[in-house]
Amino acid sequence: MELINLSAIWALIIGFGVMMYILMDGFDLGVGILYPFAPDEHARDVMMNSVAPIWDGNETWLVLGGAGLLAAFPLVYTILLPALYLGVFLMLAGLIFRGIAFEFRFKSVRNRHWWNRAFCWGSMVATFCQGVVVGAYIEGFEVANNVYVGGPFDWLTPFTVITGLALMAGYALLGATWTILKSEGQVQEWAYRITPRLLGLVLAGFAVISIWTPFVDDFVRERWFGHLTLFWVFPALALLCAAMVWRSVARRREGQPFVATLGLFFFTYLGLVASKWPYLIPPDITLWDAASAPESQLFLLLGVLFVIPVVLGYTAWSYWVFRGKVRGGGYH
C-alpha cells in the first residue's frame, strides 16, 4: 500500500520534472535550432539574450529528473541509459557545446561565428537525440532479467528518426513563438513569418507519428482504438492549441502564440503518457516494477519536496526579473 502511494507520488514528480524540462529547455533549444535561419547577427544577439539568463535554470530539470530516476525508479535509469548509450553521449556533447557557447559567445569578438556554430549544432544534436529517445520509448526496449539486452543501435530506426526530426520542428516552433514574445521590430516580424511554416512541419510530424505509432506498438493500438475513448480529448486539445497558434499569429498577438504552443506540447505529452501508462519501460516494466525500496523513495522525497518549491520560486523570480522585450545591442 505504502509502496504504491510513494511510487505514484514519484511518478508524478518525475513526470512533472520531465514536462518542465521539455517546455522550458524546449524553447531555448529551439532558439538554437533557428540560429542559422536568423536574418542577421543582431537578431541572433536578441535571440540569445532572450534565453541567456534562464537556460541553465531550465536544464536544472534534466539533472533533477535524471537523479530522481536513479533514486526512485532505478530500473529506468539502468535500462534506458545503456539502451540509448551512444545517443545519450551525443545529447550530452550537444548540451555541453551549447552551454559553453552561451558563456563565451558574448566574451568573444573575432571568433564569435564559431560560438554561433557550437550553439546551433549543439542545440540541433541535443534536440534530435531527445526526439529519438521519445521514439525509442514508444517502440519499447529489449529487456531480459531487468537488463537491457538489445543492440547498440536499436534506438536508431526510421520511426525514431521521424520523432527526432519532429521534435526539432516542435522545439523550433517553441523557439519562434518565444522570440515573438521577447522581441520587436524586424526580428519579431521574421519570427511571425516562420511560425506558420514551423507549425505546418509540426503538424505533419504529428500526423505521421500518430498514424505510425499504432503499427509499431500493439499496446498503443489497443489503448487508443479499444473501448476507452476518453483519451481522445488530449489530441483534440492539442489540435485546438495548434489552431490557436495559427490564429494568434495571423492577428499578430505577442504572447498567445507561445502559450498556445506550450499547450500543444502539454497535451501531446499527456497523450503520450496516456498511451503508455502505467508502463515506465515499455513493453513490460511498470512503474511499480521499476521502483526502488520505499525507504529510499521516502528518504529522498523529503529533500525533493523541500527543494522543488525553492527551484520553482527561483525560476519564477528570474523570469519576472527578465520579463519584457530583449534588445540586442550594447556591446562592440
Binding site: Y77, S296, L300
Partner: peptide, 14 residues
C-alpha cells in the same frame, strides 16, 4: 546499489 546510491547522489544534486 540504487537503494543507497540513488538518494545519496540525488541529495548532492538537491
Amino acid at each position: 546499489t540504487s537503494n543507497f546510491l540513488g538518494p545519496m547522489l540525488s541529495y548532492e544534486v538537491v
